[in-house]
Design a protein around this nucleic acid. Structure first.
Lengths: 207, 207, 207, 207
DNA sequence: TATGAATGAGCTTTCATTCAT
DNA sequence: TATGAATGAAAGCTCATTCAT
């Protein structure tokens, strides 16, 4: 499918992928300009369409590309032998934040892609999103020891609340980093804050 | 700022506001067409730009307009003498749902606006969103009886977790609605789900 | 349908019509460039699409416009009280040649339109062509005195042969004129040549 | 000129010729895509332009190629010892129809080429058409017995009328075929129609 | 001989916005 | 206050042709 593109020397591949990710992440599917992409990548108009038959195929290729990168890196780092839900979640959030710092464009693109509304790609994306979520949910929750949770309330809802909490916390951290001058994240501080939340959630949700 | 527009007879104001809300809600900021808005409102191209100097001003006006409507109606209905946090939250959710049923276009527009990513308006919207949340948080938490919460964990963190939970829940609802074919929200289902969360949080966080 | 365009001052209308006719006649539907048309007409890109919603509508408008002009002028000049088929045909060919000399672009466009193959306009044109031919055949043959023709051969075929002959003669004349330096037609010479053909056909096909 | 191409093994030559004929016949000169031709022929882009320096040369080569094929086959079959003009004409029509049935793509291409209007090739084609007609006229009229024609009218004009008639008839046939959905010519019907014309012309123009 | 990556001008159409009336 | 004609930049994509390998 994308064999022509994948046979390119990887330096040019990177230039194209990065230019496209940046443009799509910034403007969304519909408003992203293939003109801008080729200018940024330093290639000709025709060449982009030689590799990807149209804007849509380019976008969907990028989605798959980013997805593989993220998932690969993530599961390479996460410790699935940790059975405690709080600890695993907390660790996952930290890893996610590290990855976002290492590959900011890639994550930016992925986040926007998950919100993308354009009719042109909505149907295809939806399928991919579903797969993404199903596969990763299952994988992430694998081996968790649920017996530690209190029995008098709904377990799935507790799990959701915990997930929500750490996601919001991560959002807040990244948002603050964005506003700060050097965009620097103080990971130690973040870890300490997360510990506070962990303590509250554990005392409230564990037996 | 918008005095010229506000001096119009209200029937024409309504036609314009409704046409614009509908177009922006359906297509998002960037893809919304001022052509379509004037056609739907039955006014001339020039007139729209006479009242609002450009597309952006029109959009931001609509945001403020909807915001005022919603907040005004909301605090008119909510009972701030209710001291129990969970009861007040539960009631607030009910009121929000009533309003969504009464003013569907207005909420539709507002929901899209809160997810709007267009660079052109993102910065201004972000400021407005923040204000919106800060002002309402403070107001909403006024007079709450915090003595009912358990003493062995950090209170502000519990409140944050609760807030995070309902924000995420609301995001999820909007997101699901966006993905669903008709973009329809089943309010009763939402209310029931919220009650489940409330129950878990109450049992876990109250003494 | 084309009311916006028809309300323009006629000088601008003419500029647009002439530019479009020229471009379509020269290059055919598919290859005609709206860029070229607006440049030649001295108007902006957007304006053309303000008057005609797309290239196709512009083309079909031109077809109707040319058709009306040609048919109107033709029947204004042709003498339908002449009952002799040879004389009427001969006269008609002369009138056609005069008109072609007066309105060369219009005829050029019409000829090309009748051969136009582009899928985009083929269906609509076909309907118009059929109407055009049916209406004009009937009108042109009206009142002819067929009793003068010999009875031992097929009449419709004789009529066709006569029509073919004068059409080819006219084609040859116009083609020669095109090749000649001043593009001038010597009508007297043409008339004399036509008379020679008339003589042969009359002696062979009349009783 | 095309020596490089003609030295190719004939299987590849055929693949290229057939692919090109098909594409040009289907879409006309301007819209035919060299991309499509190389894909269909299974050769690379560069190779096509190695053999034929550009699209135009390829087209004109095809015209000559088809012309030679057709003319060669035609005079191989036609009986030039038949002195009667109408019999020879009638036989020629039969042979043409046989050839059209044996080499449908070749004729399809040729028919389209004779109607081709593209500016890019029009001039060259026009010259070739003229040559084609002149050469064949002379050859075709060779040895005809003109004593059978009536003496009371101008012989060259009669011959012209006959030629005009069959040319127009052929044009009409091609034109109708072009308009018809499947572009199919019913050869038997054409032959019958031609016989009718022959009958009329014979009775009118012979003594 | 053969490849296919690379070019960039060209295509139609839409857009927010201006301005003379 | 109200009109809508007018603008021209920008969009995604295709094209014949070239050229280093």
């Amino acid at each position: 499918m994308y064999s022509k593109f994948l046979n390119l020397d990887s330096e040019k591949q990177d230039r194209i992928v990065n230019a496209a990710m940046k443009e799509f992440a910034q403007k969304g599917y519909d408003l992203a300009s293939t003109n801008q992409i080729v200018k940024e990548a330093g290639i000709s108009k025709g060449l982009l369409f030689h590799y990807f038959k149209n804007k849509k195929q380019l976008y969907l290729f990028l989605f798959d590309y980013c997805y593989s990168m993220i998932v690969g890196e993530f599961y390479h780092k996460v410790d699935l032998s940790e059975k405690d839900f709080f600890k695993r979640t907390s660790e996952a959030i930290m890893i996610k934040m590290e990855l976002m710092t290492s590959y900011p464009d890639l994550f930016k693109f992925m986040e926007e892609a998950l919100l993308e509304e354009s009719l042109e790609v909505k149907a295809e994306l939806e399928k991919k999103r579903k797969e993404f979520i199903d596969i990763n949910m299952e994988k992430f929750f694998e081996g968790i020891d649920y017996t530690k949770f209190r029995d008098d309330v709904n377990l799935p809802i507790m799990l959701k609340i915990i997930t929500f909490t750490f996601e919001k916390l991560s959002d807040e951290t990244l948002f603050k980093a964005k506003l700060a001058p050097g965009h620097e994240i103080n990971y130690e501080e973040v870890r300490l804050e997360a510990e506070e939340y962990l303590k509250v959630l554990k005392r409230s949700f564990y037996k």
